[in-house]
Write a protein that binds this DNA or RNA. Structure first.
Length: 794
RNA sequence: GGGGAUGUGGCGGAAUUGGUAGACGCGCUAGUCUUAGGAACUAGUAGGGCAACCUGUGGGAGUUCAAGUCUCCCCAUCCCCACCA
């Protein structure tokens, strides 16, 4: 069969769309807005198939909404700061800025070859000073609200990239998200965002969001809210005492405490404060603290060292031993844990190993073994005996002088990076070393260029003479600049506001425009960003919402994660495996319409499946488009009732499935229609036109070309989405399934509203079906109109 | 260990939400046309059986006239979190 010439057609229409400014949106005048967002790419220099999956498929929905009369904004930009640029600079002596902007140039071409309905006038590049001026401004606002602060803390240190990482950037196996290096723990003075202030709202507000449960749960889990009690404990040695406290979710087991364990971090702090805890404790604590988190967690065997400290039980006043043990985490709760070996597995293991007393305080009725961590009735707990564990929880906490408290797994977001190619933190220090936000009139606080950025662990900006001079010139002698740059996740946590008003010089975006366009109607992206970018963006949005900078409390009305395209061999695409599919070659061979349709056809878009690239399937999709094209030579004649019914069914199906991101079933029904039309002698113009309208979101170029060919008016994108004729659909006959004695025996063609009696009569008059009834008596008939008739016989 | 999801032909996946399981595509088989084709087209394609039929949605129970879909118990795979007190 003769195929169509995708190269000419796609070039022709991409130019025409561009010239007509077809996808430019006026955010000020739009009436019925739809804001669709896809995660903007890092300018790595080469577009891969994953980008197509991420950008070309949601474009189907954008085009659908546009044909339904919406003012659709579908923007694109670049997350342009980051390490690859800097590493390329170090390796090949390139300028990171040059490297980045050259890559962006290349990617522009590739992105345009997709033929998406992007509004290119709104492109945003985070490394552009016009953009990062506002990244810096947001930082200064957070600083003013004490949501950005500096503190001495143990942070994740990536020894390869030589920079600090946020907790979210350390993978479960303890390696850096980017470098893959084993992350170390290092005590440093660092900038943080106080995301923990928003922990409750970040959890609670999830309830009202129309997001998949798995995404919400992943965030809830990450934030890790835990309700319990904080109970004071006094630890003493040599006449000195330390008033601390433990966090527990089981205050009811307080009378079963037989020892206390402290985290190595706490022991180290005590030693630094001059406590003499002995050589063994010192050695153990220091060794544990410097261990990479992974090593420490890998060792499931409980270890610990007895300290000379003595803890006083807050109720019984009994003296109990204190251990330092590395299974106690320094950054969760208080880093001090009460040991209840009878009712906690870890404490039990520890107590058994070090031969410590075990006192059961929950009556297990001898049915459960110790350790027993369930609920029950208290025993061995003095006046609290016979209380239920549930009721005793708060009472015991109060009796011990403690209070109910909630803790979180979430840590504050570490945002300083000791690297060059990033947004400079807009802070200067006065001669006394106090930090001050750089006032708005000096923003953007530009990234200096007189810097050698070979990573040494010291931030490269420290070497910039220009930055030093600039600071002193503006703020006075003795003032010094902050030398760290911002985590690039900060750049990307607000870009969606900027798309709305990208050239605004007075605000990150105009308030009225924000009010009209936020929140985003649908945001699709990768599942790997659930606890990174998406969480950070929600935090920044809430902080800005509280400052009345942005209008919506949540930025993303709908979030959906997509799947992953694998290589033809079923493995993740990677250069080393040699299984990378180059989209440019595919554009050349099949055209953009085919790639987009193939990726849409592969499965449900809003589920995170893994899809191996199938070179034969894509040929099948191209065959389908060729068939649509070829069909244009058979135009003419009248619409038959049968064809019209199939057409109306297809309109109904596509209009129902497409908005739900079920692009694959939408295409399937279009293929079904084509199969029917091909069997006809001729195809009426109106039928073909409707087919093109339905196909336009999936294959915009070839649909537009055919639209023009058959005399369609103007751009197909401006044509109205067809509406199914409900009269035709209602008048259609259906196949009524016939069951006899509960077994499927066939079907009869009937009107949708046929009565039970008429249907029964038809079955009786049908030789084949009535044979199943035979001489048997009809006991009962179950009839579901338009669906099924089930005749029960004796 | 905790949380979330998913199990349907050789493969990706459908199933009007409790109503004829396997739409659509790939692959496969046969044929047509071709010097040839890994091109295109036509027909077939869950398994078993010559057939009428029978069996089939990870396994096992159950509810129902009717279960891929609902309930309970297992099994497997994937993702997230995890010595979180």
């Amino acid at each position: 069969m003769e195929g169509y010439n995708h190269k000419d057609i796609e070039k022709k229409w991409q130019e025409a769309w561009q010239e007509a400014g077809l996808y430019a949106v006026d955010t000020e005048s739009a009436k019925d807005k739809a804001y669709l967002l896809v995660e903007f790419p890092y300018p790595s220099g080469d577009l891969h198939v994953g980008h197509w999956f991420a950008f070309a498929v949601p474009d189907i929905y954008a085009r659908y909404l546009r044909m339904n009369g919406k003012d659709v904004l579908y923007p694109i930009g670049f997350d342009a700061f980051g390490l690859p640029a800097e590493n390329a600079a170090i390796k090949h002596g390139e300028d990171p800025k040059e490297w980045t902007f050259q890559n962006i140039e290349r990617m522009h071409k590739q992105l345009r070859s997709m033929g998406n309905s992007f509004d290119w006038d709104r492109e945003v590049v985070t490394a552009d000073p016009g953009y990062y001026k506002w990244t810096q401004w947001i930082f200064t606002q957070l600083f003013a609200k004490d949501l950005a602060y500096k503190k001495e803390a143990t942070v994740n240190w990536d020894p390869v990239d030589k920079t600090v990482l946020a907790n979210e950037q350390v993978l479960p196996d303890g390696t850096g998200e980017r470098s893959g290096a084993l992350v170390e723990q290092k005590l440093m003075n660092q900038w943080f965002f106080k995301i923990t202030d928003y922990a409750d709202r970040l959890i609670d507000d999830l309830d009202d969001l129309d997001w998949p449960e798995e995404i919400k749960d992943a965030q809830r889990n990450w934030i890790g809210r835990s309700h319990g009690a904080e109970i004071p404990f006094v630890l003493s040695h040599n006449g000195k005492s330390w008033n601390t406290s433990v966090f527990t979710t089981r205050a009811d087991t307080l009378m079963g405490v037989t020892f206390v364990t402290i985290a190595p971090e706490r022991a180290k702090e005590l030693i630094e404060d001059g406590w003499d805890l002995g050589e063994d404790v010192k050695e153990y604590a220091l060794k544990s603290v410097s261990k990479p988190a992974r090593d420490r967690e890998a060792n499931k065997e409980k270890t610990g060292v007895k300290t000379p400290l003595v803890a006083t039980h807050p109720i019984s006043k009994k003296e109990i031993p204190v251990y330092v043990a590395d299974y106690v985490l320094g950054n969760y709760g208080t880093g001090v844990v009460m040991g209840v070996p009878a009712h906690d597995e870890r404490d039990h293991a520890f107590a058994t190993k070090y031969d410590l007393e075990i006192i059961p305080v929950v009556d297990t009725k001898k049915e459960e073994e110790i350790p027993y961590s369930g609920e029950g009735v208290l025993m061995n707990s003095g006046e609290f005996d016979t209380e239920t564990t549930h009721n005793a929880r708060e009472k015991l906490a109060k009796a011990a002088g403690g209070e109910m408290k909630t803790t979180y797994r979430l840590r504050d977001w570490s945002i300083g990076r000791q690297r060059y190619w990033g947004c400079p933190i807009p802070i200067v220090y006065d001669p006394e070393g106090n930090p001050h936000a750089i006032p708005k009139e000096h923003l953007p606080w530009t990234l200096p260029t007189d810097v050698d950025f070979t990573p040494t662990g010291v931030a490269p900006l420290a070497k910039s003479e220009e930055l030093k001079e600039r600071t002193e010139k503006i703020f006075g002698e003795g003032w010094t600049p902050e030398i760290e740059t911002l985590d690039t996740f900060m750049d990307s946590s607000w870009y969606f506001y900027r798309y709305l008003d990208p050239k605004n010089e007075n605000a990150l975006a105009d308030k009225d425009i924000l009010k009209q366009w936020m929140p985003i109607d649908r945001y699709s992206g990768g599942s790997e960003h659930t606890t990174l970018h998406v969480l950070y963006s929600r935090f920044i949005n809430k902080a800005l919402f509280d400052m009345e900078v942005v209008p919506a409390e949540e930025p993303f009305r709908v979030r959906m994660n997509r799947g992953l395209i694998l290589g033809p061999d079923g493995n993740k695409m990677s250069k080393s495996k040699g299984n990378v599919i180059n989209p440019d070659d595919l554009v050349e061979k099949y055209g953009a319409d085919t790639i987009k349709s193939y990726l849409a056809f592969i499965g449900p878009y809003n589920e995170t499946g893994f899809y191996p690239w199938d070179p034969q399937s894509i040929a099948g999709i191209r065959r389908f488009l060729d068939r649509v094209y070829t069909l244009s030579s058979k135009l003419g004649g009248e619409v038959t009732d049968e064809v019209n019914l199939e057409l109306q069914k297809t309109i109904e199906k596509v209009s129902r499935d497409l908005p739900e991101a079920k692009f694959h079933t939408s295409l399937a029904s279009l293929m079904g229609l084509i199969n029917i039309l091909e069997k006809e002698e001729s195809v009426a113009d109106e039928v073909y036109k409707t087919l093109l309208l339905l196909l336009a979101p999936f294959a915009p170029h070839v649909s537009q070309e055919l639209w023009e060919k058959i005399g369609g008016e103007g751009f197909i994108d401006h044509a109205k989405w067809p509406e199914a004729d409900s009269k035709v659909l209602e008048a259609a006959t259906v196949m009524l399934a016939v069951q006899i004695g509960g077994k499927s025996r066939g079907a009869i063609e009937v009107a949708q509203d046929i009565s039970e009696d008429d249907a029964l009569e038809l079955v009786k008059n049908n030789d084949k079906l009535s044979a199943y009834i035979g001489d048997s008596e009809i006991k009962k008939v179950i009839f579901v109109p338009g669906r099924i008739i089930n005749i029960l016989i004796t």
